[in-house]
Write a protein that binds this DNA or RNA. Structure first.
Length: 547
RNA sequence: GACCCGUUGGUGAAGUGGUUGAACACGCCACCCUCUCAAGGUGGUAUUCAUGGGUUCGAAACCCAUACGGGUUACCA
Protein backbone atom coordinates (compact mmCIF):
# COMPACT_ATOMS: atom_id res chain seq x y z
CA UNK A 1 0.00 0.00 0.00
CA UNK A 2 1.18 3.46 -0.87
CA UNK A 3 0.44 5.31 2.34
CA UNK A 4 1.44 8.66 0.93
CA UNK A 5 -1.11 8.24 -1.85
CA UNK A 6 -3.75 7.10 0.62
CA UNK A 7 -3.13 10.06 2.91
CA UNK A 8 -3.35 12.56 0.05
CA UNK A 9 -6.46 10.87 -1.24
CA UNK A 10 -8.22 11.22 2.11
CA UNK A 11 -6.95 14.66 3.04
CA UNK A 12 -6.29 16.50 -0.20
CA UNK A 13 -6.74 19.93 1.35
CA UNK A 14 -4.69 19.62 4.50
CA UNK A 15 -3.26 23.07 5.27
CA UNK A 16 -0.92 22.35 8.10
CA UNK A 17 0.98 19.24 9.08
CA UNK A 18 1.68 17.65 12.40
CA UNK A 19 5.12 19.30 12.37
CA UNK A 20 3.56 22.72 11.85
CA UNK A 21 1.40 22.22 14.92
CA UNK A 22 4.29 20.97 16.97
CA UNK A 23 6.13 24.17 16.12
CA UNK A 24 3.10 26.24 16.96
CA UNK A 25 2.69 24.53 20.34
CA UNK A 26 6.20 24.05 21.70
CA UNK A 27 6.91 22.18 24.91
CA UNK A 28 6.00 24.14 27.99
CA UNK A 29 8.83 25.72 29.88
CA UNK A 30 8.12 24.94 33.49
CA UNK A 31 9.96 23.99 36.63
CA UNK A 32 11.08 20.40 36.71
CA UNK A 33 8.36 18.99 38.92
CA UNK A 34 5.58 21.28 37.76
CA UNK A 35 2.45 19.39 36.81
CA UNK A 36 0.18 20.31 33.98
CA UNK A 37 -3.34 19.07 34.59
CA UNK A 38 -6.69 19.71 33.08
CA UNK A 39 -10.38 19.39 33.54
CA UNK A 40 -11.95 18.12 30.36
CA UNK A 41 -15.73 17.87 30.64
CA UNK A 42 -18.33 17.49 27.94
CA UNK A 43 -20.80 20.35 27.80
CA UNK A 44 -23.75 18.18 28.78
CA UNK A 45 -25.10 20.17 31.70
CA UNK A 46 -24.26 21.04 35.29
CA UNK A 47 -21.03 20.02 36.89
CA UNK A 48 -21.74 17.30 39.42
CA UNK A 49 -19.90 16.16 42.50
CA UNK A 50 -17.96 13.48 40.66
CA UNK A 51 -16.51 15.79 38.07
CA UNK A 52 -15.93 18.47 40.66
CA UNK A 53 -13.91 15.94 42.62
CA UNK A 54 -11.73 15.13 39.62
CA UNK A 55 -11.25 18.78 38.71
CA UNK A 56 -10.46 19.64 42.31
CA UNK A 57 -7.71 17.02 42.44
CA UNK A 58 -6.25 18.19 39.15
CA UNK A 59 -6.39 21.78 40.29
CA UNK A 60 -4.65 21.04 43.57
CA UNK A 61 -1.78 19.22 41.91
CA UNK A 62 -1.18 21.97 39.41
CA UNK A 63 -1.22 24.59 42.15
CA UNK A 64 0.95 22.79 44.66
CA UNK A 65 3.56 21.94 42.04
CA UNK A 66 3.65 25.39 40.48
CA UNK A 67 2.21 24.08 37.23
CA UNK A 68 -0.73 24.82 35.02
CA UNK A 69 -4.38 23.83 35.27
CA UNK A 70 -6.48 24.32 32.20
CA UNK A 71 -10.03 23.73 31.03
CA UNK A 72 -10.73 21.90 27.81
CA UNK A 73 -14.19 21.33 26.45
CA UNK A 74 -14.75 17.92 24.94
CA UNK A 75 -17.63 18.57 22.63
CA UNK A 76 -16.99 15.98 19.97
CA UNK A 77 -20.37 14.36 20.46
CA UNK A 78 -22.69 16.98 19.15
CA UNK A 79 -25.79 14.93 19.82
CA UNK A 80 -25.31 15.14 23.55
CA UNK A 81 -24.45 18.77 23.69
CA UNK A 82 -26.61 21.05 25.76
CA UNK A 83 -27.35 24.67 25.04
CA UNK A 84 -25.02 27.01 26.93
CA UNK A 85 -23.15 23.96 28.16
CA UNK A 86 -19.80 25.69 28.10
CA UNK A 87 -21.03 28.78 29.92
CA UNK A 88 -22.61 26.51 32.50
CA UNK A 89 -19.34 24.72 33.18
CA UNK A 90 -17.36 27.91 33.46
CA UNK A 91 -19.85 29.49 35.82
CA UNK A 92 -20.06 26.33 37.95
CA UNK A 93 -16.30 26.22 38.29
CA UNK A 94 -16.28 29.84 39.24
CA UNK A 95 -18.86 29.24 41.93
CA UNK A 96 -16.72 26.47 43.33
CA UNK A 97 -13.77 28.78 43.29
CA UNK A 98 -11.70 26.67 40.94
CA UNK A 99 -9.82 28.94 38.58
CA UNK A 100 -8.15 27.67 35.48
CA UNK A 101 -5.05 29.24 33.97
CA UNK A 102 -6.02 28.56 30.38
CA UNK A 103 -9.28 27.72 28.68
CA UNK A 104 -12.26 28.94 26.72
CA UNK A 105 -12.98 32.55 27.42
CA UNK A 106 -9.59 33.34 28.87
CA UNK A 107 -7.40 31.87 26.17
CA UNK A 108 -3.85 30.59 26.43
CA UNK A 109 -0.91 29.60 24.28
CA UNK A 110 -2.19 26.12 23.56
CA UNK A 111 -5.70 26.83 22.33
CA UNK A 112 -8.24 26.56 21.01
CA UNK A 113 -9.51 24.78 24.11
CA UNK A 114 -12.72 23.58 22.56
CA UNK A 115 -12.33 20.36 20.66
CA UNK A 116 -14.80 21.13 17.91
CA UNK A 117 -12.53 24.05 16.98
CA UNK A 118 -9.52 21.78 16.64
CA UNK A 119 -10.75 19.68 13.75
CA UNK A 120 -7.82 20.49 11.46
CA UNK A 121 -5.32 19.61 14.14
CA UNK A 122 -6.79 16.14 14.52
CA UNK A 123 -6.80 15.73 10.77
CA UNK A 124 -3.12 16.57 10.60
CA UNK A 125 -2.37 13.90 13.15
CA UNK A 126 -4.53 11.33 11.43
CA UNK A 127 -2.72 12.17 8.24
CA UNK A 128 0.52 11.48 10.02
CA UNK A 129 -0.71 8.13 11.30
CA UNK A 130 -1.89 7.13 7.84
CA UNK A 131 1.53 7.96 6.45
CA UNK A 132 3.04 5.62 8.98
CA UNK A 133 0.55 2.89 8.18
CA UNK A 134 -1.18 3.16 11.55
CA UNK A 135 -4.58 4.25 10.32
CA UNK A 136 -6.92 3.53 7.48
CA UNK A 137 -10.44 4.31 6.28
CA UNK A 138 -13.29 1.88 6.87
CA UNK A 139 -16.61 1.98 5.07
CA UNK A 140 -18.83 -0.42 7.00
CA UNK A 141 -22.32 0.79 7.70
CA UNK A 142 -23.85 0.71 11.17
CA UNK A 143 -25.97 -2.24 10.11
CA UNK A 144 -22.96 -4.19 8.94
CA UNK A 145 -21.21 -3.58 12.23
CA UNK A 146 -24.28 -4.65 14.17
CA UNK A 147 -24.44 -7.84 12.19
CA UNK A 148 -20.79 -8.51 12.84
CA UNK A 149 -21.34 -8.15 16.58
CA UNK A 150 -24.29 -10.49 16.48
CA UNK A 151 -22.23 -13.16 14.81
CA UNK A 152 -19.41 -12.65 17.25
CA UNK A 153 -21.78 -12.97 20.19
CA UNK A 154 -23.29 -16.10 18.73
CA UNK A 155 -19.91 -17.67 18.23
CA UNK A 156 -18.84 -16.52 21.71
CA UNK A 157 -15.96 -14.52 20.39
CA UNK A 158 -14.77 -11.20 21.66
CA UNK A 159 -16.87 -8.47 20.27
CA UNK A 160 -15.27 -5.73 18.25
CA UNK A 161 -13.53 -4.61 15.13
CA UNK A 162 -10.22 -6.42 15.21
CA UNK A 163 -8.08 -9.05 13.52
CA UNK A 164 -9.86 -10.82 10.71
CA UNK A 165 -13.03 -8.84 11.44
CA UNK A 166 -11.23 -5.66 10.47
CA UNK A 167 -12.23 -5.79 6.83
CA UNK A 168 -11.21 -2.23 6.13
CA UNK A 169 -7.60 -3.23 6.60
CA UNK A 170 -7.71 -5.33 3.47
CA UNK A 171 -9.03 -2.67 1.12
CA UNK A 172 -6.76 -1.76 -1.76
CA UNK A 173 -6.06 1.80 -2.75
CA UNK A 174 -8.27 1.35 -5.80
CA UNK A 175 -11.18 0.05 -3.73
CA UNK A 176 -10.83 2.99 -1.38
CA UNK A 177 -10.74 5.35 -4.28
CA UNK A 178 -13.89 3.77 -5.64
CA UNK A 179 -15.70 4.19 -2.29
CA UNK A 180 -14.66 7.82 -2.14
CA UNK A 181 -15.90 8.44 -5.65
CA UNK A 182 -19.24 6.92 -4.64
CA UNK A 183 -19.26 9.30 -1.66
CA UNK A 184 -19.65 6.38 0.73
CA UNK A 185 -19.47 7.57 4.30
CA UNK A 186 -16.46 6.34 6.22
CA UNK A 187 -14.51 6.56 9.41
CA UNK A 188 -10.77 6.45 10.01
CA UNK A 189 -9.72 3.57 12.20
CA UNK A 190 -6.58 2.77 14.06
CA UNK A 191 -4.53 -0.12 12.77
CA UNK A 192 -3.95 -1.67 16.15
CA UNK A 193 -0.66 -3.44 16.62
CA UNK A 194 -1.31 -5.18 19.92
CA UNK A 195 -2.57 -8.61 20.69
CA UNK A 196 -5.17 -9.70 23.19
CA UNK A 197 -3.03 -12.54 24.51
CA UNK A 198 -0.13 -10.25 25.07
CA UNK A 199 -0.33 -8.57 28.47
CA UNK A 200 1.43 -5.38 29.17
CA UNK A 201 1.94 -3.47 32.33
CA UNK A 202 1.67 0.19 33.15
CA UNK A 203 1.71 2.18 36.32
CA UNK A 204 -1.25 4.13 37.47
CA UNK A 205 -0.52 6.90 39.96
CA UNK A 206 -3.32 5.74 42.23
CA UNK A 207 -3.92 2.08 41.53
CA UNK A 208 -0.31 1.11 41.02
CA UNK A 209 0.73 -1.62 38.61
CA UNK A 210 -1.94 -2.73 36.21
CA UNK A 211 -1.75 -5.64 33.82
CA UNK A 212 -3.97 -5.43 30.79
CA UNK A 213 -4.07 -7.08 27.39
CA UNK A 214 -2.51 -4.85 24.78
CA UNK A 215 -4.93 -3.28 22.38
CA UNK A 216 -5.90 -5.09 19.21
CA UNK A 217 -9.09 -3.20 18.47
CA UNK A 218 -9.13 -1.02 15.40
CA UNK A 219 -11.03 1.68 17.19
CA UNK A 220 -12.47 4.69 15.42
CA UNK A 221 -10.20 7.71 15.38
CA UNK A 222 -12.23 10.02 13.23
CA UNK A 223 -15.99 9.71 13.02
CA UNK A 224 -18.07 10.10 9.91
CA UNK A 225 -18.60 13.76 10.71
CA UNK A 226 -14.85 14.29 10.70
CA UNK A 227 -14.67 14.89 14.45
CA UNK A 228 -12.40 12.71 16.54
CA UNK A 229 -13.51 10.22 19.15
CA UNK A 230 -12.55 10.82 22.77
CA UNK A 231 -9.77 8.28 22.46
CA UNK A 232 -8.00 10.15 19.72
CA UNK A 233 -8.77 13.68 20.83
CA UNK A 234 -7.43 12.89 24.28
CA UNK A 235 -4.10 11.71 22.90
CA UNK A 236 -3.60 14.58 20.47
CA UNK A 237 -4.73 17.30 22.87
CA UNK A 238 -2.91 16.12 25.93
CA UNK A 239 0.21 15.75 23.86
CA UNK A 240 0.03 19.20 22.28
CA UNK A 241 -1.16 20.91 25.43
CA UNK A 242 1.65 19.38 27.41
CA UNK A 243 -0.46 17.63 30.04
CA UNK A 244 1.75 15.76 32.48
CA UNK A 245 -0.96 14.08 34.55
CA UNK A 246 -4.35 12.94 33.41
CA UNK A 247 -6.77 12.59 36.31
CA UNK A 248 -9.96 10.86 35.23
CA UNK A 249 -12.59 8.41 36.39
CA UNK A 250 -11.58 4.78 36.55
CA UNK A 251 -14.12 3.85 33.89
CA UNK A 252 -11.26 4.81 31.58
CA UNK A 253 -8.87 2.28 33.00
CA UNK A 254 -9.66 -0.44 30.50
CA UNK A 255 -9.12 1.79 27.54
CA UNK A 256 -5.76 3.05 28.71
CA UNK A 257 -3.95 0.48 26.54
CA UNK A 258 -5.50 2.17 23.51
CA UNK A 259 -4.24 5.54 24.62
CA UNK A 260 -0.76 4.31 25.38
CA UNK A 261 -0.61 2.57 22.04
CA UNK A 262 -1.56 5.79 20.29
CA UNK A 263 1.11 7.76 22.12
CA UNK A 264 3.66 5.15 21.10
CA UNK A 265 2.56 5.29 17.47
CA UNK A 266 2.94 9.05 17.50
CA UNK A 267 6.34 8.53 19.01
CA UNK A 268 5.72 10.77 22.02
CA UNK A 269 5.89 10.36 25.75
CA UNK A 270 2.49 9.69 27.32
CA UNK A 271 1.28 11.57 30.39
CA UNK A 272 0.97 9.84 33.72
CA UNK A 273 -2.49 8.53 34.48
CA UNK A 274 -4.39 8.75 37.74
CA UNK A 275 -7.65 6.85 37.68
CA UNK A 276 -9.95 7.77 40.50
CA UNK A 277 -12.70 5.54 41.83
CA UNK A 278 -16.20 6.97 41.69
CA UNK A 279 -18.02 8.57 44.59
CA UNK A 280 -20.75 6.17 45.57
CA UNK A 281 -23.94 5.98 47.55
CA UNK A 282 -25.53 3.12 49.42
CA UNK A 283 -29.20 2.47 48.98
CA UNK A 284 -30.66 -0.49 50.82
CA UNK A 285 -27.38 -2.37 50.86
CA UNK A 286 -26.70 -1.69 47.24
CA UNK A 287 -23.76 0.51 46.40
CA UNK A 288 -23.83 2.53 43.25
CA UNK A 289 -22.16 5.51 41.69
CA UNK A 290 -23.44 8.87 42.84
CA UNK A 291 -25.91 9.81 40.16
CA UNK A 292 -26.66 13.15 38.66
CA UNK A 293 -30.24 12.11 38.04
CA UNK A 294 -31.22 10.49 41.30
CA UNK A 295 -29.08 11.98 44.07
CA UNK A 296 -29.72 15.49 45.22
CA UNK A 297 -26.30 15.74 46.85
CA UNK A 298 -24.70 15.15 43.48
CA UNK A 299 -25.64 18.50 42.02
CA UNK A 300 -24.00 21.74 43.06
CA UNK A 301 -27.38 23.41 43.00
CA UNK A 302 -28.36 21.48 46.10
CA UNK A 303 -25.46 22.94 48.07
CA UNK A 304 -26.25 26.43 46.91
CA UNK A 305 -29.89 26.08 47.92
CA UNK A 306 -29.03 24.59 51.30
CA UNK A 307 -26.38 27.18 51.88
CA UNK A 308 -23.53 24.77 52.31
CA UNK A 309 -20.38 26.77 51.72
CA UNK A 310 -18.08 26.00 48.85
CA UNK A 311 -15.19 25.76 51.23
CA UNK A 312 -16.89 22.98 53.20
CA UNK A 313 -17.31 20.96 50.03
CA UNK A 314 -13.69 21.44 49.19
CA UNK A 315 -12.54 20.49 52.66
CA UNK A 316 -14.65 17.36 52.48
CA UNK A 317 -13.36 16.44 49.04
CA UNK A 318 -9.84 17.03 50.31
CA UNK A 319 -10.43 14.54 53.13
CA UNK A 320 -11.75 12.01 50.65
CA UNK A 321 -8.77 12.62 48.48
CA UNK A 322 -6.15 12.22 51.21
CA UNK A 323 -7.64 11.12 54.51
CA UNK A 324 -4.70 12.54 56.42
CA UNK A 325 -5.87 15.99 55.41
CA UNK A 326 -8.68 15.59 57.90
CA UNK A 327 -6.28 15.11 60.82
CA UNK A 328 -4.32 18.09 59.67
CA UNK A 329 -7.38 20.23 59.23
CA UNK A 330 -8.99 19.39 62.55
CA UNK A 331 -5.84 19.79 64.57
CA UNK A 332 -4.67 23.06 63.02
CA UNK A 333 -6.78 26.11 63.46
CA UNK A 334 -5.10 27.88 60.57
CA UNK A 335 -5.17 24.87 58.28
CA UNK A 336 -5.68 25.54 54.61
CA UNK A 337 -5.91 23.33 51.58
CA UNK A 338 -3.03 25.07 49.87
CA UNK A 339 -0.65 24.39 52.75
CA UNK A 340 -1.16 20.67 52.75
CA UNK A 341 0.80 18.35 50.51
CA UNK A 342 -1.47 15.97 48.70
CA UNK A 343 -0.20 12.84 47.01
CA UNK A 344 -1.73 10.23 44.76
CA UNK A 345 -0.31 7.53 46.98
CA UNK A 346 -2.39 8.63 49.92
CA UNK A 347 -5.56 8.29 47.92
CA UNK A 348 -7.80 5.29 48.38
CA UNK A 349 -8.20 2.93 45.48
CA UNK A 350 -11.75 1.81 46.20
CA UNK A 351 -14.87 3.89 45.67
CA UNK A 352 -15.91 5.99 48.66
CA UNK A 353 -19.42 6.42 49.94
CA UNK A 354 -20.33 10.05 49.90
CA UNK A 355 -21.14 11.09 53.46
CA UNK A 356 -23.22 14.23 53.72
CA UNK A 357 -23.19 14.09 57.53
CA UNK A 358 -19.46 14.32 57.63
CA UNK A 359 -19.50 17.12 55.14
CA UNK A 360 -21.83 19.04 57.44
CA UNK A 361 -19.60 18.39 60.41
CA UNK A 362 -16.66 19.83 58.51
CA UNK A 363 -18.81 22.72 57.49
CA UNK A 364 -19.54 23.48 61.17
CA UNK A 365 -15.87 23.41 61.94
CA UNK A 366 -15.18 25.70 59.02
CA UNK A 367 -17.81 28.20 60.15
CA UNK A 368 -16.57 28.11 63.72
CA UNK A 369 -13.15 29.24 62.59
CA UNK A 370 -14.29 32.32 60.74
CA UNK A 371 -14.37 35.66 62.43
CA UNK A 372 -17.83 37.19 62.79
CA UNK A 373 -16.99 39.70 60.11
CA UNK A 374 -15.81 37.05 57.68
CA UNK A 375 -18.93 35.04 58.31
CA UNK A 376 -21.06 38.11 57.79
CA UNK A 377 -19.50 38.80 54.45
CA UNK A 378 -19.81 35.20 53.39
CA UNK A 379 -23.45 34.77 54.14
CA UNK A 380 -24.66 37.97 52.48
CA UNK A 381 -24.63 36.65 48.90
CA UNK A 382 -26.60 33.61 50.00
CA UNK A 383 -29.40 35.63 51.58
CA UNK A 384 -29.35 38.23 48.88
CA UNK A 385 -30.22 35.50 46.45
CA UNK A 386 -32.41 33.20 48.50
CA UNK A 387 -34.07 35.35 51.16
CA UNK A 388 -34.02 39.04 50.26
CA UNK A 389 -36.24 39.90 53.21
CA UNK A 390 -33.79 38.52 55.74
CA UNK A 391 -30.99 40.07 53.74
CA UNK A 392 -32.53 43.49 54.35
CA UNK A 393 -32.73 42.80 58.05
CA UNK A 394 -29.17 41.51 58.21
CA UNK A 395 -27.68 44.48 56.43
CA UNK A 396 -29.72 47.22 58.07
CA UNK A 397 -27.12 47.48 60.81
CA UNK A 398 -24.07 45.41 59.90
CA UNK A 399 -22.31 45.93 63.21
CA UNK A 400 -25.39 44.67 65.05
CA UNK A 401 -25.49 41.52 62.92
CA UNK A 402 -21.80 40.98 63.39
CA UNK A 403 -22.18 41.26 67.14
CA UNK A 404 -24.82 38.53 67.00
CA UNK A 405 -22.60 36.33 64.89
CA UNK A 406 -19.84 36.92 67.38
CA UNK A 407 -21.70 35.35 70.30
CA UNK A 408 -19.48 32.66 71.84
CA UNK A 409 -17.20 32.80 68.85
CA UNK A 410 -14.06 34.35 70.21
CA UNK A 411 -13.28 31.95 73.05
CA UNK A 412 -11.16 28.86 72.92
CA UNK A 413 -14.10 26.66 72.06
CA UNK A 414 -16.27 28.55 69.64
CA UNK A 415 -19.81 27.41 69.10
CA UNK A 416 -20.47 25.05 66.24
CA UNK A 417 -24.12 25.43 65.55
CA UNK A 418 -23.99 26.61 61.98
CA UNK A 419 -23.47 24.03 59.28
CA UNK A 420 -25.22 25.98 56.53
CA UNK A 421 -26.05 29.58 55.79
CA UNK A 422 -29.67 28.67 56.45
CA UNK A 423 -28.79 27.70 60.00
CA UNK A 424 -27.82 31.27 60.68
CA UNK A 425 -31.35 32.49 60.26
CA UNK A 426 -32.63 29.54 62.25
CA UNK A 427 -30.46 30.50 65.18
CA UNK A 428 -30.54 34.28 65.11
CA UNK A 429 -33.88 35.46 63.78
CA UNK A 430 -35.20 36.27 67.26
CA UNK A 431 -32.55 38.94 67.69
CA UNK A 432 -34.25 41.03 65.03
CA UNK A 433 -37.36 42.87 66.15
CA UNK A 434 -39.00 42.46 62.76
CA UNK A 435 -39.07 38.70 63.19
CA UNK A 436 -39.49 38.67 66.94
CA UNK A 437 -42.65 40.73 66.82
CA UNK A 438 -44.32 38.53 64.27
CA UNK A 439 -43.81 35.35 66.15
CA UNK A 440 -43.75 35.99 69.88
CA UNK A 441 -47.26 34.94 70.52
CA UNK A 442 -47.64 32.07 68.07
CA UNK A 443 -44.27 30.46 68.13
CA UNK A 444 -42.94 30.99 71.62
CA UNK A 445 -43.42 27.89 73.80
CA UNK A 446 -44.70 29.86 76.79
CA UNK A 447 -45.93 27.71 79.66
CA UNK A 448 -48.60 28.65 82.18
CA UNK A 449 -46.11 28.21 84.96
CA UNK A 450 -43.99 31.04 83.64
CA UNK A 451 -43.96 34.20 85.70
CA UNK A 452 -43.85 37.23 83.46
CA UNK A 453 -44.22 39.81 86.28
CA UNK A 454 -41.21 38.27 87.99
CA UNK A 455 -39.12 38.60 84.87
CA UNK A 456 -40.33 42.13 84.40
CA UNK A 457 -39.35 43.11 87.92
CA UNK A 458 -35.98 41.50 87.44
CA UNK A 459 -35.20 43.49 84.34
CA UNK A 460 -36.59 46.72 85.69
CA UNK A 461 -35.01 46.61 89.11
CA UNK A 462 -32.03 44.28 89.07
CA UNK A 463 -30.62 43.84 85.60
CA UNK A 464 -27.72 46.15 84.88
CA UNK A 465 -26.08 46.28 81.49
CA UNK A 466 -22.68 47.18 82.80
CA UNK A 467 -22.40 44.10 85.02
CA UNK A 468 -19.80 41.55 84.11
CA UNK A 469 -21.01 38.07 83.36
CA UNK A 470 -20.13 36.78 86.82
CA UNK A 471 -21.77 39.67 88.60
CA UNK A 472 -24.81 39.34 86.39
CA UNK A 473 -25.19 35.68 87.21
CA UNK A 474 -24.70 36.18 90.93
CA UNK A 475 -27.23 39.00 91.03
CA UNK A 476 -29.72 36.93 89.09
CA UNK A 477 -29.41 34.05 91.53
CA UNK A 478 -29.66 36.34 94.49
CA UNK A 479 -32.79 37.90 93.08
CA UNK A 480 -34.64 34.71 92.32
CA UNK A 481 -33.82 33.15 95.65
CA UNK A 482 -36.07 35.84 97.17
CA UNK A 483 -38.96 34.42 95.18
CA UNK A 484 -38.52 30.79 96.12
CA UNK A 485 -36.37 29.73 93.20
CA UNK A 486 -33.29 27.67 94.01
CA UNK A 487 -29.93 29.22 93.16
CA UNK A 488 -28.59 26.00 91.71
CA UNK A 489 -30.06 22.90 90.23
CA UNK A 490 -28.46 20.81 92.95
CA UNK A 491 -30.12 22.81 95.68
CA UNK A 492 -33.43 22.43 93.93
CA UNK A 493 -33.11 18.69 93.52
CA UNK A 494 -32.41 18.26 97.22
CA UNK A 495 -35.86 19.56 98.05
CA UNK A 496 -38.00 20.22 94.98
CA UNK A 497 -41.13 20.77 97.04
CA UNK A 498 -39.71 23.88 98.60
CA UNK A 499 -39.11 25.73 95.33
CA UNK A 500 -41.02 26.96 92.26
CA UNK A 501 -37.98 26.00 90.25
CA UNK A 502 -34.33 26.87 89.96
CA UNK A 503 -32.06 29.22 88.13
CA UNK A 504 -32.47 27.13 85.01
CA UNK A 505 -36.21 27.58 85.16
CA UNK A 506 -35.77 31.33 85.28
CA UNK A 507 -33.30 31.33 82.44
CA UNK A 508 -35.77 29.29 80.47
CA UNK A 509 -38.44 31.93 81.00
CA UNK A 510 -36.08 34.65 79.88
CA UNK A 511 -35.19 32.60 76.82
CA UNK A 512 -38.73 31.93 75.84
CA UNK A 513 -40.05 35.40 76.55
CA UNK A 514 -37.23 37.27 74.92
CA UNK A 515 -35.98 34.85 72.27
CA UNK A 516 -39.02 32.66 71.62
CA UNK A 517 -36.91 29.57 71.99
CA UNK A 518 -35.80 26.97 74.50
CA UNK A 519 -32.43 26.75 72.84
CA UNK A 520 -30.16 29.72 72.51
CA UNK A 521 -26.52 30.52 73.05
CA UNK A 522 -25.34 32.23 76.20
CA UNK A 523 -28.11 34.46 77.57
CA UNK A 524 -25.77 37.03 79.05
CA UNK A 525 -24.29 37.84 75.68
CA UNK A 526 -27.65 37.96 73.99
CA UNK A 527 -29.04 40.32 76.61
CA UNK A 528 -26.05 42.59 76.19
CA UNK A 529 -26.64 42.81 72.48
CA UNK A 530 -30.35 43.37 72.89
CA UNK A 531 -29.88 46.26 75.40
CA UNK A 532 -32.06 46.92 78.41
CA UNK A 533 -34.38 49.22 76.56
CA UNK A 534 -35.31 46.63 73.97
CA UNK A 535 -35.60 43.94 76.60
CA UNK A 536 -38.21 45.97 78.40
CA UNK A 537 -39.95 46.79 75.13
CA UNK A 538 -40.24 43.10 74.40
CA UNK A 539 -41.65 42.35 77.85
CA UNK A 540 -44.21 45.13 77.56
CA UNK A 541 -45.09 43.81 74.16
CA UNK A 542 -45.87 40.39 75.58
CA UNK A 543 -48.01 41.92 78.32
CA UNK A 544 -50.02 43.84 75.76
CA UNK A 545 -50.38 40.79 73.64
CA UNK A 546 -51.81 38.88 76.55
CA UNK A 547 -54.45 41.46 77.27
C1' G B 1 -19.69 -14.30 28.14
C1' A B 2 -14.59 -12.12 28.07
C1' C B 3 -11.15 -8.75 30.27
C1' C B 4 -9.85 -5.42 34.23
C1' C B 5 -10.22 -2.98 39.16
C1' G B 6 -11.74 -3.21 44.11
C1' U B 7 -13.33 -5.55 49.20
C1' U B 8 -10.26 -3.19 56.97
C1' G B 9 -16.68 -1.40 62.19
C1' G B 10 -22.76 2.13 60.30
C1' U B 11 -19.12 5.86 57.32
C1' G B 12 -14.11 7.94 55.55
C1' A B 13 -9.80 5.48 56.63
C1' A B 14 -4.34 4.39 59.05
C1' G B 15 -1.81 0.18 57.98
C1' U B 16 3.57 -2.08 52.73
C1' G B 17 5.33 -9.47 57.17
C1' G B 18 6.74 -8.76 63.99
C1' U B 19 5.00 -2.99 70.70
C1' U B 20 -2.00 -4.14 65.77
C1' G B 21 -4.52 -6.87 72.16
C1' A B 22 -6.36 -2.76 64.32
C1' A B 23 -4.74 4.45 64.91
C1' C B 24 -7.45 8.85 63.82
C1' A B 25 -12.04 11.23 62.33
C1' C B 26 -17.61 11.26 61.37
C1' G B 27 -21.97 8.80 63.35
C1' C B 28 -24.24 6.36 67.43
C1' C B 29 -24.59 5.35 73.00
C1' A B 30 -23.33 6.61 78.10
C1' C B 31 -21.33 9.77 81.60
C1' C B 32 -18.95 14.64 82.98
C1' C B 33 -19.26 19.99 82.47
C1' U B 34 -23.63 23.10 82.45
C1' C B 35 -29.01 28.23 82.84
C1' U B 36 -31.03 25.51 77.64
C1' C B 37 -28.86 24.20 73.09
C1' A B 38 -24.35 23.77 70.30
C1' A B 39 -19.59 22.79 71.56
C1' G B 40 -15.84 20.59 74.81
C1' G B 41 -14.04 16.39 78.03
C1' U B 42 -14.05 10.97 79.28
C1' G B 43 -15.41 6.20 78.01
C1' G B 44 -18.10 2.51 74.94
C1' U B 45 -19.07 0.93 69.93
C1' A B 46 -14.89 -4.68 64.59
C1' U B 47 -14.78 -11.91 69.57
C1' U B 48 -10.57 -9.03 63.91
C1' C B 49 -9.41 -6.96 58.40
C1' A B 50 -15.29 -10.52 52.32
C1' U B 51 -14.72 -16.25 52.54
C1' G B 52 -11.66 -20.60 52.04
C1' G B 53 -6.91 -22.52 51.26
C1' G B 54 -1.63 -21.90 51.07
C1' U B 55 3.62 -19.46 51.95
C1' U B 56 6.06 -18.18 56.79
C1' C B 57 8.63 -19.08 63.30
C1' G B 58 4.89 -15.13 62.47
C1' A B 59 -0.16 -12.28 57.76
C1' A B 60 -5.05 -7.49 57.62
C1' A B 61 -0.52 -7.23 54.83
C1' C B 62 2.53 -12.15 50.08
C1' C B 63 0.24 -16.21 46.65
C1' C B 64 -4.13 -18.97 44.77
C1' A B 65 -9.33 -19.93 44.46
C1' U B 66 -14.37 -18.45 45.47
C1' A B 67 -18.04 -14.78 46.60
C1' C B 68 -19.70 -9.95 46.31
C1' G B 69 -19.38 -4.82 44.36
C1' G B 70 -17.78 -1.65 40.31
C1' G B 71 -16.00 -0.80 35.32
C1' U B 72 -14.95 -1.84 30.04
C1' U B 73 -16.47 -4.52 25.85
C1' A B 74 -20.04 2.54 21.07
C1' C B 75 -18.83 6.45 14.83
C1' C B 76 -20.83 8.59 24.20
C1' A B 77 -17.48 10.92 26.94
Amino acid sequence: MDYQALASLLFPHLKETREDYEKKYPKRELKEKAMVTRFAPSPTGFIHMGSLYASFISYIFAKQSGGVFYLRIEDTDQKREVENGIEQIISDLKKQDICFDEGPGIGGEYGPYIQSERKEIYHAFVYDLILKGYAYPAFETKEELEKMKEIQAKEKRRIGYYGSYAKGRKLSLEQIQQHLENHDPYVIRLKANGSFDQKFEFKDCIKGRIMLPSNDMDIVLLKQDGLPTYQFAHVVDDYLMGTTHVVRGDEWLSSTPIHLQLFRMLGVKPPKYAHIAPLTKKIENRVRKLSKRYDKECSMEYYQKEGIPTMAIKIYLATLFNASFEDYYLSNKDASISNFTFTFQKMGVGGSLFDLTKLLFLSKTYFSRLTAKQLYEELLPFYQENDPEFYQVLTKDPSYTISILNVERTGKKPRKDFATYQDIKKHTWYMYDEYYKQSTMERAPILDSYDLPLIKIYFEKVYCESDSKDVWYEKLKEFISQYDYAKTVKEYLQDPEQYHGHVGTVCEMIRVYLFCSLETPDIYELLQILTKKRILDRIVGIQKGKK
